[in-house]
Simulated assay, not measured.
Amino acid sequence: MTALPSVEKAEELLPREPRTPLSVYRTFVLPAEEAALNLAKHQNAQTRVIQARVIGYLLLYPPSPQARMMLAREISSCSGWEAVYDLGAKYIRHFIILFRKSRGKTPVPSSHPSRPSFAHDVRERLQDLQRAPLDHSSAKVSALARDNYRCMVTGRVDTPSYLSGLTSLSPGEIGGYSNCCHIFPDSLANIVPGAAGPKEQDAVTVWTILKRFGYEDICEELGFASTSANLHRLENIMTLDVIVHEQFDRMNLWFKAIDGQDNTYKVVLAPAVGGLARLVAIPEQVTFVAHRPELPLPSPKYLRIHAACCQIAHLSGAAEHLDVIFRDMEELKVLAQDGSSADVLTYALHHRWAAPV
């Protein structure tokens, strides 16, 4: 967790014209952080500090200029610090947490059918590759072909694909197990048509935030929480080694675009998992290449939103906060009588809708 920068430092990040973002940062955000810090041992003090910092860092490092202006207007309408904290809570629950997926304690590779049936299934599907696969299985097959049956980050050969004869090992290459990784989670399509329950409301809230942030095109591409939602389009899919996938889903690994170089990214690791680079041979920089030109690569725009949420989560302390909550959701049997488990209950109820499709 990192304290919000001073107004002088913020001036280097916030545009001078219009001055609304800098003004609300000075008038609302920094005082809200200070007020939360002064709560001392208050039960919710730490949570409120995180909420204020989420708002501050979202203002400083937004996924888009329109997101910054929209957030500045929301902050300026707050009537008191509690409203600022509530706004921070909203963005944690409906935006930041979108990319924090829980997959249990051990990474599990996407399952493959038996060797002969898998190879037959793949070859059959490769005869009619779709630009927008309709399900997880089709997306994995198409992404594997696009990515040359290798992890897009480590370059490790997908072992089931090798055993099925779909690819070969060059000298020095090693195998591994890869997963079909969604940038925007496929749980956004996990809604009942015509229903208006909590999971539908949560999904619609996510899409609404994206639209207000200037991403109407993403809402259209991914389905805007409708019966035609297509989270399996290849622009939303990556082939990743199971360990890389796990860290990507835990918001500990993200991709920062390098200016002037198409589909080239700096691979950013959170400080807590920095040693993973040596253990799994994660490079500092990657360039994504479509080995089948007709199949689109992951969208830079999708990756930019994921990267912004990861950066904000770690700077604000929300990442560690969510780690504790997700751990407690798995381990706690009974809620604490003093109310200290309130966050766990809130996120557990909210997270019900995000179960895998």
Rank of each mutant, 00 (worst) to 15 (best):
R250A: 12
V204M: 09
Q66Y: 07
T106A: 09
A195F: 05
M70G: 00
R93P: 02
S168L: 14
R53Q: 05
L253I: 06
V29H: 07
M152I: 05
G197D: 15
T208N: 14
E221F: 11
E34K: 15
Q127W: 01
D323M: 07
N263S: 14
A354V: 00
P113I: 02
W353N: 03
V122E: 01
L87T: 02
A354N: 04
V334R: 15
N148M: 06
L188M: 12
T287S: 13
Y149E: 03
K333R: 15
Y215H: 11
S161Q: 02
A281V: 11
P65W: 12
E11Y: 01
R103A: 12
I282A: 09
Y149K: 03
I209K: 06
R233E: 01
F213I: 03
A195R: 08
V344C: 09
R73E: 11
V204K: 14
N230C: 06
A277L: 10
A72W: 02
Y302D: 04
P21C: 08
K256D: 13
L315F: 04
L332I: 12
R146I: 06
H306C: 07
C310H: 01
G339V: 09
L322T: 03
S170R: 14
R327D: 15
D259K: 12
A307C: 12
C219W: 04
R278K: 14
P31Y: 11
L332K: 13
W207C: 09
R123V: 02
A10R: 12
N179Q: 08
N190T: 06
A145M: 06
D158T: 10
C309E: 01
V206Q: 07
F99L: 07
D328M: 11
K9H: 12
L315E: 00
I237Y: 00
T167Y: 06
Y162M: 10
D323I: 01
I183K: 01
T227K: 13
E12G: 11
L22H: 12
A277N: 13
P356V: 10
M1S: 11
S102Y: 09
T205P: 05
D249M: 02
E216Q: 15
L231W: 00
A35D: 12
G197F: 07
R156I: 02
D86Y: 05
R125F: 11
T27I: 09
S23K: 10
R150V: 04
Q127E: 13
F224Y: 13
E8F: 00
E124A: 13
V334P: 06
V122G: 01
A196R: 14
V267K: 01
I191K: 01
S110K: 10
V267Q: 00
Y149A: 04
L166T: 07
Q337N: 12
R327H: 15
E12S: 14
W353T: 01
S316N: 05
P298K: 03
H112N: 10
I183C: 05
H291D: 08
L37A: 06
A281M: 12
G223V: 07
S170I: 02
L59Y: 07
Q51V: 02
V244L: 06
I96F: 07
M70R: 13
N38G: 05
V242N: 03
V29C: 08
L188C: 07
R304Q: 14
